[in-house]
Amino acid sequence: MPPERVITDDAPRTDNPYSQGVVAGDTLYVSGYGPVDPETGEEIDGDIEAQTDRVLDNIAAVVSEAGGDGLDDAVKLTVYVTDLDDYERVNEAYGARFDEVPPARVCVEVARLPGDVRVEMDAIAYLG
Score class of each variant (00 low, 15 high):
P3F: 15
V6L: 08
V6G: 06
V6D: 06
V6E: 06
I7D: 00
D10N: 13
R13L: 01
N16H: 09
P17G: 12
Q20C: 00
G21Y: 03
V22R: 12
G25A: 11
Y29I: 14
V30P: 02
V30K: 07
V30T: 00
G32E: 13
Y33R: 09
G34R: 07
V36A: 11
D37M: 02
T40M: 05
T40D: 05
T40W: 03
E42I: 00
E43M: 03
E43R: 00
I44F: 09
I44E: 09
G46N: 08
G46V: 08
D47L: 05
D47G: 00
A50W: 06
Q51R: 15
T52Y: 09
R54P: 09
L56Y: 02
D57C: 08
N58Q: 07
I59P: 02
A60S: 10
V62N: 02
V62H: 00
E65Q: 12
G68M: 10
D69Q: 12
G70C: 07
G70D: 06
G70Q: 01
D72R: 11
D73A: 03
K76G: 01
T78G: 07
V79I: 14
D83N: 13
D83T: 04
L84Y: 15
D85G: 08
R89V: 02
V90M: 12
A96F: 01
R97T: 13
F98V: 11
D99V: 04
P102N: 13
A104V: 12
R105L: 07
V106T: 15
V106K: 12
C107Q: 05
V108L: 14
E109M: 08
V110H: 10
A111Q: 10
L113T: 04
P114G: 09
G115Q: 14
V119H: 04
E120N: 10
D122R: 14
D122N: 15
A123P: 11
I124D: 05
G128F: 04
G128A: 02
G128E: 06
G128W: 02
